[in-house]
Design a protein around this nucleic acid. Structure first.
Lengths: 331, 331
DNA sequence: GTACAATATGCAAACGTTTGCATAAAATGT
DNA sequence: ACATTTTATGCAAACGTTTGCATATTGTAC
């Protein structure tokens, strides 16, 4: 049993309310008493029950972060930035993952709500706009990262990011450009595919869906995509990858087959993980401004918690980082 | 305001206790009433207050995980395995990070305790045995990962792991072997250094501390270590790295200087991240059994929560994985 | 010495649950 | 028709806080 205010009260020979007030330096309590109670509390190892406090005040100082998956370094990077963005505030952050499952995402949301947290940030949601139908949104506001159609969200313009990368490849002379997906048609993936298709059609490259092959958003998926691409009657000369981990897998797969990147194939990633510049070859990729996204997500959520009702959908622009995994198309 | 049991009671025309019992299918409640109340609760979007429940029952179904740092993929891998180990149980996991700060580790522990969580797992603790003096250990049991001197802990035998790697290098003919650290003398790092020194002295290689250079446990630190090593009057022929990310940094740094791994230098990592086999060259490294560590940590914690008092320090053996970043020493 | 203000402390209700005990209603047995 | 068991429900206390209000004590002014 943890030591409670009552225990201190008994030992100090005062009432529980006096202890409560003394501990928060309430003016009405005598200086001597306050002092005595505070040292006593310290001696007894008193830690206030956030549970009881939350019950009576019906507000919490912790924010939940529900993340799709801990294995995607981009998500982890984002979590880290969200945590950093909150250190100056009075809040704490509790993170949990829903393991790429819609069902578990919903149940995790309810678990967070059971703890009556102040608010929730969802990174990589599969539920997306379904949150609009979630009955307790007013009691625990929810901000989505990367779901621009949800009215409280912070996103990156994926379509634009992909466009930049694709234009870069086209400029280099590539026409047959493959796309290795993450294997789930999330909002994000749909936007990236849209960007991919838009650039191709803008340059009058006929659509060829055999160039779109499914990965899994991780190294393994990239590796597995390679034989499929090499088996194509009309091989691509460049490969756009859903993210950096996929790109690393693809490059590794190509190297295993004796190909050289970028001489034989140009490869582009997405995210600009720290790893991207340390891989050999250093990755040409699209940088996501995770720090600003994290800060903005906290900001929007804070406003919501404080009762603001106006919608807020922030969208940031990603940036193309050209390194050494892309080169002019051979002729 | 969230809907409470009382709201349901009012609407159903019964007492709060009846609602409480009906919702958990208590036998004493009539089938019709139970049915009616349950549908009503569903309609009203009722989610029980874990806060109130925790207050009255003084037990929680969530476990806290305090992690040193989200940016170390090994920790994240471990978190993921801890989460997986818990899915079958009735518990949930809330993760938070203390950003490599002792001070924040202590305050995070208190934050978790304020929420009166069932127990806590600390990954990469800086406090280590100081937890023995933490006053609320009985109310919220704590399990450390990687601190074998704490009586409730699950660890990997780092000394043995390093020994295996070093013996491998010695067998390949290397005598001048560098060590790139993570830059903080944690328990883990001390053990690894001990393993490093033990193997060298076993083979009568004179100690040379200029071969021990500080990294930061990440790619950057590895890259920065390279010029220091190359500047040495008597260069190493092999480099043991604190972890895989450091090894990737080191290899990248060497490649930037025009060196080839493993022809010019052998490099060994630690962790066996998924990335290790997809890097070029594929990393020779020491595999940590993260899955078993995660499972065991949960198991030890569960026993503690259920009142078991006997100490439990589990230690697992790491495994050497030989790939292509190591080769015989040139003569 | 009385009146009044200021200071210090305690009482009790409330937050949303759970649960032991009491009670009311219905069903069963005779 | 009455006693007894069974079934269904309600009452009230408790968990650890916070906080408005009441009360007791002390000090000040005249």
């Amino acid at each position: 049993m943890a030591v409670s205010i009552k225990d201190i009260a008994r030992r100090a020979g005062v009432s529980a309310s006096t202890v409560s007030r003394a501990l928060k330096n309430h003016p009405g309590i005598g200086a001597a008493t306050t002092e005595r109670i505070q040292t006593l509390a310290r001696e007894m190892g008193y830690v206030p029950s956030g549970v009881a406090r939350a019950l009576v005040s019906s507000q919490s100082s912790t924010i939940g972060v529900a993340v799709n998956d801990f294995l995607n370094p981009f998500y982890v990077d984002l979590i880290s930035n969200i945590e950093n963005a909150v250190t100056e505030e009075k809040y704490h952050v509790f993170v949990s993952s829903f393991h790429r499952s819609r069902e578990r995402e919903l149940s995790l949301t309810n678990v967070f709500f059971e703890s009556r947290l102040a608010g929730l940030i969802v990174v990589g949601s599969l539920l997306n706009r379904d949150y609009l139908a979630w009955p307790n949104r007013t009691a625990m506001p929810i901000v989505l990262v990367s779901c621009p159609t949800y009215p409280y969200s912070v996103s990156v313009n994926h379509r634009l990011g992909v466009s930049k990368a694709m234009e870069h490849l086209v400029e280099l002379g590539h026409r047959r450009i493959a796309f290795v997906t993450q294997g789930h048609r999330t909002t994000t993936e749909q936007q990236r595919l849209a960007g991919y298709r838009a650039v191709l059609s803008r340059h009058n490259v006929p659509a060829d869906d055999s160039l779109i092959v499914d990965g899994d958003g991780d190294i393994t998926g990239g590796i597995r995509a390679v034989p499929q691409l090499l088996a194509l009657p009309n091989r691509p000369t460049a490969i756009f990858c859903y993210n950096d981990m996929t790109a690393i897998g693809v490059i590794n797969g190509l190297q295993q087959q004796g190909y050289h990147v970028p001489r034989d194939f140009s490869v582009v990633g997405f995210d600009d993980l720290k790893l991207a510049s340390a891989y050999a070859p250093a990755l040409t990729t699209v940088r996501q401004p995770t720090e600003r996204v994290g800060q903005e997500a906290i900001q929007v959520l804070r406003n919501l918690i404080q009762g603001q009702t106006s919608t807020a959908t922030r969208i940031f622009e990603p940036e193309l980082i050209v390194r050494h995994s892309t080169a002019p198309a051979a002729h």
